Computed example of a mutant assay.
Amino acid sequence: MSMVGNLRKVANLARRTRHRRVDLSHPARSPLGASVVNCVVYRDGVRTPSTGGSVQEAVRHARKHRGGFVWLGLHEPGEEEFAGVADLFGLHPLAVEDAVHAHQRPKIEQYGEVLFAVFKTVTYVEHTELTATSEVVDTGEIMVFTGPDFVVTVRHGRHGSLGPLRENLEAHPDLLAKGPSAVLHAIADHVVDDYVTVTDAVQNDIDQVETDVFSPHSPRSADAGRTYQLKRELLELKRAVVPLARPLDRIATEPRACVDKEIQAYFRDVADHLTRVTEQINAFDALLDSILQAHLAQVTVAQNEDMRKITAWAAIIAVPTMVCGVYGMNFDHMPELRWTFGYPLVLTVIATVCLVLHRNFKRNGWL
């Protein structure tokens, strides 16, 4: 099987198994600290036996053999705990600060021989019904330090576990044999594939809102609230996706010593997928603007229709009001007051005029 086939297979397997969680409650799984998910040494793409749980021992073991590297995974480490890791791998202080405190803009920066990448992870929040307060997109972060013989991943958030991705990569030692850059590519591909999945799910919500806006039975106030909420959630997704485009393009086109040449070519595939997601998000944003404008236009039309009805009824009511106002004046000399047919005649005239007005307003669409 070709390398590109293996890369896509790893990504597909990761998507199918990402619901699995790494158990950190057992002491044997986290002997290095509360934030450490795993620490594994790979040599020629094959996982080596346990080194006793010491990060220092794992690094020594990886550097002792050519073609080996260590992959250290952490989840929301503290400053004190991560300081030792930073000293061990010689990580730049600025990158260390970003990795510990999170809430960073997606980027890929190089510090000497070390690449530091920040990826925003996203997941779709399932909901039975979209409301004006529904959470649609939840975000987290993955920071990746890639060096000549190590990969350090720092994850923030409730989702985005890399356990299934690690297992799937281990099933393809020919990829891991390419070194840390293969792990960086797999993570980037994994994150961007999540963008595609979430974007497709958000499209269903937008389609539902669009259908409801043009439905005569939909409450107008609810449509406006849901549209605004979707725009807010889409903005959060946009902040995660759009800033990553330029860094991915640079890593796919600019030669770097820490990125294998064969692996670098496959970053272009990831960049293409990201471009598709970016275009989709921009289209969704424009569509939501159009839906909101259509909703506001419908509200305006409905208000105009109500005003026309009120005006028409006011004109009809004005006829008996005027006649009654005339006959309500206390004049002694009014010929019709003592006429036998005066009262029924006035009622007949009022009814006739009101019916004529009602018919004309109805014909013109005012009632």
Rank of each mutant, 00 (worst) to 15 (best):
I350W: 03
A318N: 05
D332H: 14
N330R: 07
G328P: 04
G325Q: 03
L347C: 09
V356L: 13
L345N: 12
L337C: 13
Y343G: 13
C354L: 11
P335H: 12
D332K: 07
V353P: 03
V346G: 15
A351K: 15
D332I: 02
L357H: 01
F361A: 01
M329R: 03
M329W: 01
H358T: 00
G325K: 01
A315G: 02
P335S: 10
N330S: 12
Y327P: 10
I317M: 12
V326D: 04
P344E: 12
R338I: 08
T321L: 06
V326C: 07
A314R: 06
W339K: 11
L357D: 00
L345P: 11
V323S: 08
M322V: 06
L345D: 06
G342N: 07
P344H: 10
T352W: 01
M334E: 07
R359Y: 12
I317N: 07
L345M: 14
V346P: 13
V353I: 13
M329G: 09
A314M: 05
I317V: 10
A314V: 09
T348Q: 07
A351P: 02
T321H: 08
P344I: 03
T340I: 04
P344F: 09
F341L: 15
V319E: 00
E336G: 15
V326H: 09
Y327H: 05
P344S: 14
M329I: 12
P344V: 01
I317F: 03
V346N: 01
Y343M: 04
V346K: 06
I350L: 05
M322T: 15
E336W: 08
A314F: 00
A315E: 06
E336Q: 15
C354F: 01
V346A: 13
F331L: 11
M334L: 12
M329H: 07
G328M: 01
T352L: 15
V356M: 06
A318V: 03
M322L: 14
T352Y: 00
A315F: 03
M329K: 05
M334K: 07
L345A: 14
G328C: 06
L347G: 15
R338T: 15
R359N: 08
G325A: 05
W339Q: 15
D332N: 09
W313L: 15
L337E: 14
C354Q: 05
A351Y: 06
R338A: 15
C324Y: 15
M334H: 11
W339T: 11
V319K: 05
G328L: 03
V349D: 01
L347D: 08
I317H: 00
R359D: 14
N360C: 03
I350F: 00
A318Q: 07
L347E: 08
Y343R: 06
V319W: 01
T321E: 05
F341Y: 14
P320G: 04
A315K: 04
V349R: 10
C354M: 08
W339S: 14
T321I: 09
T340Y: 11
M329P: 02
A318K: 05
T348V: 09
I317C: 04
V349L: 12
T348M: 13
T348N: 13
R359V: 05
Y343A: 10
C354P: 00
W339M: 14
F361R: 09
M322Q: 03
E336K: 02
L355E: 10
F331R: 12
V319N: 04
V319Y: 04
C324F: 15
C354W: 02
T321R: 13
W339V: 11
